[in-house]
C-alpha cells in the first residue's frame, strides 16, 4: 500500500481534523457555527475552508489533481484569511497544521517494521514537501492579496474624486492655454 492509498483510505477523518485546525484559528464561540452550518452561502468562510482543505489534501497526498483547481482552492482560502485581521503567519501557516496531523496519524503507520523494505518513508517525506510547496504558493498569494488591498484603497480615493480631478485638469488646461497677460509682475 503506497502513501497515497494509505492516506486516501482515511481521507475523511484526516481532512476533518485539518479543517478543525483551521476553525481553531477563529474564536471558540464561532467554531460551532463554522463547523455545522453546511451552506456555502450562509457560511462562506467555513465552507470555502472545507472545500479547499479537501482539494489541497488530495494534492498533498499525491492524488492526480488538476493544478488549476488546486491553485484556485488555495487562492480562495488564502484570500479570505488575508483580510481577516490575522497575522500572516496565522493566515498562511495554518496549512502546516496538517503536518502535525500526518505525523501523529500517518507516520507511525509508515514506520511499522513490515513496511521497512518499501519506499514509504521517502514517499512520506515527499508528501510533506508537497505541503511545503503549497505553503510557498500560499505566501505568494497572501502577498498578492495584500497588494491588491492597497491598490484598491488608492483606486477608491481616485474614483470618489473623479469629477474633481476632471475639473482640476480642465482648469489646468485652461490656464496653460490662456495667453500671457502683460504687466502681471509686481516689479514695476
Amino acid at each position: 500500500m503506497d502513501i497515497t492509498e494509505l492516506c486516501s483510505n482515511r481521507r475523511e477523518a484526516l481532512t476533518e481534523l485539518w479543517v478543525n485546525r483551521f476553525f481553531a484559528t477563529y474564536p471558540l464561540d464561532s467554531k460551532g457555527f463554522m463547523r455545522t452550518k453546511r451552506d456555502r452561502f450562509a457560511n462562506p468562510v467555513g465552507e470555502t475552508t472545507r472545500m479547499a482543505a479537501g482539494i489541497l489534501f488530495d494534492a498533498v497526498i499525491g492524488m492526480d489533481a488538476d493544478s488549476a483547481t488546486v491553485k484556485q482552492a488555495l487562492h480562495d482560502l488564502i484570500w479570505i484569511r488575508a483580510v481577516q485581521d490575522m497575522p500572516p503567519s496565522k493566515a498562511v501557516g495554518a496549512l502546516y497544521l496538517l503536518k502535525e496531523i500526518l505525523r501523529s496519524e500517518v507516520l507511525p503507520e509508515c514506520l511499522k517494521p513490515e513496511r521497512s523494505g518499501f519506499s514509504v518513508l521517502n514517499d512520506y517525506l515527499a508528501m510533506e514537501s508537497r505541503l511545503d510547496t503549497l505553503g510557498l504558493m500560499a505566501l505568494d498569494m497572501y502577498s498578492e492579496a495584500r497588494e491588491r488591498v492597497f491598490r484598491i484603497r488608492v483606486e477608491e480615493v481616485k474614483r470618489s474624486q473623479s469629477q474633481v480631478i476632471r475639473l482640476a485638469k480642465l482648469r489646468r488646461e485652461q490656464a496653460e492655454s490662456a495667453p500671457e497677460t502683460e504687466n502681471r509682475g509686481v516689479e514695476e
Binding site: 481553531a24 503567519s89 496565522k90 501557516g93 495554518a94
Partner: peptide, 28 residues
C-alpha cells in the same frame, strides 16, 4: 511549535468570557 505560534491547540478555550475580552486597537 507552529501550533503554539498560531495558538491553535485543539481545546483553545478563551481565557476569559466575552464580558472581559477587551477589544484590540490597531491601524485598520
Amino acid at each position: 511549535t507552529p501550533e503554539e505560534l498560531l495558538a491553535v491547540t485543539p481545546a483553545s478555550f478563551p481565557k476569559e468570557g466575552w464580558m472581559d475580552t477587551k477589544p484590540d486597537f490597531h491601524p485598520g
